[in-house]
Write a protein that binds this DNA or RNA. Structure first.
Lengths: 230, 230
DNA sequence: GCGCCGCTGTCTTGCGCGTGTCATCAATCC
DNA sequence: GGATTGATGACACGCGCAAGACAGCGGCGC
């Protein structure tokens, strides 16, 4: 999962520094500027995943930056969170109408901004916000029914998919065949436990990639577990 | 354009009544309740397009309602706007972390709530706000009922149109036949799920263009999804 | 009213892939 | 070495989807 790229546009230096620090610590890739024109430049050359934009900044005004970002094809759908010092409702409504996705009124707590950013990203790019399962070099998107290993898409049958999903939900944990049957089949009681072996084998060869270890660990007389592999 | 369905959960009776009136006047289909358990019931039997949720309500608490909505497959992606008491930052952060999409602090003006609802809907389901949808090389204009692929107009039947519109609102996401029936038919319960297959086929041949891939992906034993194709 | 045509839902057929079981071989344990 | 447990390959069955056909229905023009 790549670090979400943030563009922070804030001309209050101490606040900007604080936010940059906090967001970096949370695993975001932050690019900061105090200037509206620079912001447009940065956004054009490397579109970020989200923009945090102060309403009152040097150079081009916040609302104008917002409008121009929306006008450009590459940045039209980048979510924008506005920071405003004014509590005036008119400004907030106008901000939303201009195309901001969200706003926060100063003063605010960094913690709340963090939560907001996470919420917006979760909505816009689910893959960035943990709606996808990720274990080692593998990712599974339960919404799109997509599985990848090292970026390359894999093809699994329905049963292998359910099996892998369950294993990825509890990595490193060992499950008995009975537990796996219960989890990935809906008529578990009618099915032989040996069948699990077969599907584990099919899963193994479906996720097989040259030069990489088998992430599925066999535990003799106990069951199977999924280990993170990089 | 169908009226967006709102579920309003608010136990302050005068406020609830006011909001119900205002939103109805704006063309929304509003269902209101003061009770968290009823809200879950309503949401289960007929998933709304958006939920307005007071944090402090009778019965199951707001945060719990939010969590349960997120847990259910059918309502996991319904946007939620929560209403909190002034200054309760903890509630706001927890709400956003639980999966609320937005919040408003009491007291607020109905006008601002209207703007927020419109903003969230525009973001989540642009078609409800009359914006043209765009996925890969296809565009759909919900106002003009026009569909194009690579600039060339397509001819779809009514059912194919509704089906495609729903798929384009959530690209890459896999929908079960039941979900598609629910979304594109108005008497979904009287209709065989196999019928979806047939309309998917008709949709496929309607959007077929020589030299371009089929954007509709079949996911065995799960459903269908629309993939962006250029 | 009559006939035409487009849309829709269901059914049938055909095919391919996924699935469960078994027999056999390999590995591990005691 | 014998016994137990897992891995592998083969195979037959059936489920799930695609495609074609068709009848019912409603709108529309004449």
């Amino acid at each position: 999962m790549p670090a979400p790229k943030l563009l922070l546009v804030e001309d209050d230096a101490p606040l900007a520094e604080l936010l940059e620090y906090r967001f970096s610590a949370e695993g975001y890739a932050v690019r900061a500027t105090a200037n509206g024109d620079d912001a447009l430049l940065y956004a054009a050359e490397d579109p970020p995943d989200l923009v945090i934009l102060d309403w009152m900044i040097e150079g081009t005004s916040g609302i104008e930056v917002c409008r121009r970002l929306r006008r450009r094809e590459e940045t039209a759908h980048v979510p924008i969170i506005m920071l405003t010092a004014r509590g005036a409702e008119d400004d907030r409504v106008r901000g939303l109408e201009t195309g901001a996705d969200d706003y926060l009124t100063k003063p605010f707590s960094p913690r709340e901004l963090l939560a907001r950013v996470a919420a917006v990203l979760r909505r816009v790019r689910p893959a960035l916000a943990g709606e996808t399962l990720s274990v080692g070099d593998m990712t599974l998107d339960p919404v799109a029914f997509r599985v990848e290993r090292g970026g390359a898409p894999l093809h699994l049958g329905p049963t292998e998919y359910r099996l892998l999903k369950y294993l990825m939900e509890h990595p490193k944990r060992v499950f008995s065949r009975a537990q796996l049957l219960e989890a990935a089949w809906d008529n578990a009681d009618e099915i032989s436990e040996r069948t699990v072996d077969v599907h584990i084998r099919r899963l193994r060869q479906a996720i097989e990639v040259a030069g990489r270890d088998d992430p599925i660990r066999t535990v003799r007389s106990a069951g199977y577990a999924l280990e993170p592999v990089r």
